[in-house]
């Protein structure tokens, strides 16, 4: 029996991984899955309100393609996962502390910071994807 729960751990700063994570989160969230996204490490800074990176790192040619073609922006896809589907996006409490960030500093659709213990507990029995 397949679980309806998808947990997505996002730690990368690369365009390809962020794009794939956002695709899994958004399509999963609008397709009957309960999606929980956990943002940590190098991924977290993208979700600071008003942050507009000049150049998002790519891992290879496909990342350059994503930047040049009209692919949906990964930030928009995460937002749509919340607004159109059943998704919650949590900043990692450890990463928030290390970066000196508060919830008020983050984009509006992020939930309160969450610890890894709780996230892993909630992920039990479902699909877990790491990017």
């Amino acid at each position: 029996m397949a679980s309806d729960k998808i947990s997505v751990i996002v730690v990368s700063e690369s365009r390809e991984r962020l794009q794939m994570a956002a695709m899994v989160a958004s399509v999963g969230a609008v397709s009957g899955h309960r999606v929980s996204v956990f943002l940590s490490m190098n991924a977290l800074s993208y979700f600071v309100a008003g942050y507009s990176p000049y150049d998002i790192p790519v891992e290879g040619e496909f990342g350059k393609l994503l930047a040049s073609k009209n692919a949906p922006e990964f930030m928009d896809l995460f937002e749509q996962a919340v607004d159109l589907g059943d998704a919650q996006v949590f900043p990692c409490s450890m990463a928030m502390d290390m970066l000196g960030l508060k919830q008020a500093d983050m984009v509006r659709y992020l939930e309160e910071p969450l610890g890894l213990t709780r996230f892993l507990d909630d992920a039990t029995g479902g699909q877990v994807w790491t990017f």
């Binding site: 695709m23 958004s26 399509v27 009209n70 949906p72 749509q80």
Partner: peptide
């Protein structure tokens, strides 16, 4: 037209809502 997966799907869902 002109956008890529999952753009058209997400636009459809927004329209359905």
């Amino acid at each position: 037209r002109g956008t890529f997966c999952p753009g058209p799907l997400m636009e459809l869902i927004a329209g359905i809502k």
